[in-house]
């Protein structure tokens, strides 16, 4: 088993470009995402209906303000004019109408909140209405954890799947199995070898995201790293298992959308309890669900080990099941 681990690390050491791609390509993508999703200095367009002048002046520091005297119908008005928010007051409350949950709405809300903060909190309660109500309260800004998980999973999956396919077609797998080594040792060595590389990648990604891109983490960074490492190990096992069903490199690439895209569905991008027909339960079959849920709990909700352990356990069980499946699947190449 140790020989295989050493060999995999040696192979990587001599293949600098693959190693570079493994470690730095995710960082490149994360950086790109950071700029795409990050602070874009977008000036929201906000229409105010008959509000006091102080409020309007302050709001103009944060947004493009259009003042009207009569309240239009929110839905038609927002849609037709490309306005992000409509503010109006009745006797007791201040109402904010928004079109839908999006980063633009978020920017408009932020501008209004900034204004309120500057003006001392108003006594009026803010009532926020969306024209198109969507369930869940994720805002794109808080989805960093999904991308952390998905990107790392993706790269590791390709790495381990490809090397296994290449090993089968270069017949080195057959040669390896024509020694007294047990199948458990082969899969164990493989999982551990690529798992170590994947763990290294996870650490690099998380450190870069937290300290380089200043991604907000409420809970412990170390715990995040642990979750990422577990997810990376499951990605290695998934890659190895899928490679058995791929007859060549092309087919493995074709498996990427089949395997990776459903993972993204269940990673938290779509709230699982809103998926119809109980299809949400499929999430238990996707390793990324366990990882991303745990990451969300740590990074957004600031939860600790005592609260996230069921998801960690889920990851571990998943790795175990895949490990056994791989050991059995290797029977195809040697009967013992």
């Amino acid at each position: 088993m140790l020989s295989i681990v050493k060999r995999i690390l040696g192979q990587m050491k001599n293949d600098k470009r693959s190693l570079g791609l493994l470690l730095f390509a995710p960082l490149l993508i994360l950086t790109l995402l950071f700029f795409i999703l990050g602070d874009s200095n977008y000036l929201p367009q906000i229409t105010v209906v008959d509000m006091n002048e102080k409020f309007v002046t302050e709001l103009e520091n944060h947004a493009t303000v259009i003042a009207v005297t009569e309240k239009p119908g929110a839905a038609d008005y927002l849609e037709a004019n490309g306005i992000d928010a409509l503010i109006w007051t009745d006797t007791t409350d201040t109402h904010i109408d928004l079109l839908e949950k999006s980063s633009k709405s978020a920017a408009a809300l932020e501008a209004i909140q900034e204004t309120n903060k500057a003006l001392q909190p108003s006594q009026n309660e803010l009532i926020i209405d969306y024209v198109y109500e969507t369930s869940g309260d994720n805002q794109l800004d808080s989805l960093g954890y999904i991308f952390l998980g998905v990107i790392s999973f993706f790269f590791v999956f390709i790495l381990s799947g490809m090397s296994f396919v290449r090993e089968r077609f270069g017949q080195t797998l057959e040669r390896m199995l024509m020694t007294p080594i047990s199948r458990i040792d082969v899969i164990g060595g493989y999982t551990l070898g690529y798992g170590l590389l994947a763990a290294l990648q996870s650490v690099v990604i998380i450190l870069y995201a937290v300290y380089g891109l200043q991604l907000q983490v409420e809970g412990s960074v170390a715990l995040c790293t642990l979750v990422m490492i577990l997810m990376a190990f499951s990605a290695v096992s998934v890659g190895a298992l899928v490679s058995i069903f791929a007859n060549n490199e092309l087919q493995l690439v074709q498996f990427i959308p089949v395997i990776i895209i459903p993972q993204i569905f269940f990673s938290g991008l779509i709230p699982i309890d809103t998926i119809p027909f109980g299809l949400g339960n499929l999430c238990y079959l996707t390793p990324i669900y366990y990882g991303c849920t745990a990451l969300e709990m740590i990074m957004i909700q600031g939860k600790g080990f005592s609260e996230i352990w069921p998801w960690l356990l889920g990851s571990v069980v998943f790795i175990g099941v895949l490990f056994l499946a791989n050991v059995i699947a290797l029977k195809k190449y040697r009967r013992l």
Partner: peptide, 25 residues
């Protein structure tokens, strides 16, 4: 066993290949 095609690890040196297979044995 020596298979028909070479079945060696391209990214490893001659010595490392020998070492790996001897490790398996």
């Amino acid at each position: 066993y020596m298979p028909q095609n070479e079945a060696l690890y391209e990214e490893l040196s001659v010595w490392e290949n020998l070492k790996f297979f001897s490790g398996l044995q």
